[in-house]
């Protein structure tokens, strides 16, 4: 019995783009290193290592991981608890009772905003849990629902 809701499938695009951004940083470093290597006549093994690294990075962060991550990501918000499943190689399942929730917020970076997505951050006294990349309306609805459910029962930390 896995949690039933998936996150928005636009998350795939967002994760691929952010993977691309990460890779391009590696490329910029690589180009800078190449220039330095030529100018100062360093040995070329560093460039070799960096090229191999960037190929692996590109494959993992752009092609492999977003898909696996999306498939794993599930959540379910019930009356009394929030159930989250995430992970790529290690599957993690987290349970947060509603009465432990202290506050909920939705967050939107530039990348998420462009795709009308938002992530929901659920904080307890000791931990924070994020549901990334939900459709904006869904995220807002979820935030309202959780904060309403959480305020039903008040208990001390």
């Amino acid at each position: 019995m896995e949690p039933e809701n998936r996150i928005s499938n636009k998350a795939l695009t967002v994760w691929k783009i952010s993977g691309l951004i990460g890779c391009s940083i590696t490329w910029v470093i690589g180009i800078a290193l190449l220039v330095l290597t030529i100018v100062f006549n360093w040995s070329y093994w560093m460039i070799g290592v960096l090229i191999i690294f960037s190929i692996i990075q590109a494959y993992l962060t752009i092609f492999l991981m977003p898909g696996v991550k999306w498939k794993r990501w599930r959540y379910e918000v019930r009356n009394t608890e929030i159930d989250i499943q995430s992970g790529i190689f290690v599957i993690k399942r987290t349970l947060i009772p509603m009465i432990r929730v202290q506050h909920v917020e939705t967050k939107q970076g530039p990348l998420l905003r462009k795709h009308d997505l938002a992530s929901v951050e659920i904080s307890t006294a000791a931990t924070m849990h994020v549901i990334p990349a939900l459709d904006l309306d869904e995220a807002d609805e979820l935030r309202r629902y959780i904060s309403r459910m959480a305020s039903v029962e008040e208990e001390d930390v």
Binding site: G87, F89, V90, I91, K92, R93, T94, L95, I96, P97, R100, T124, A125, A126, T127, H129, E155, V157
Partner: peptide, 28 residues
């Protein structure tokens, strides 16, 4: 009543043996 959340995770190797890593968080 003091546990803020619990979670368990399992890697591929663990799930082959039906094992998992259990954790519980409290505020400290």
């Amino acid at each position: 009543s003091r546990i803020q959340s619990i979670s368990y995770k399992k890697s591929w190797f663990q799930s082959r043996k039906e094992l998992a890593t259990m954790s519980a968080s409290i505020k400290s």
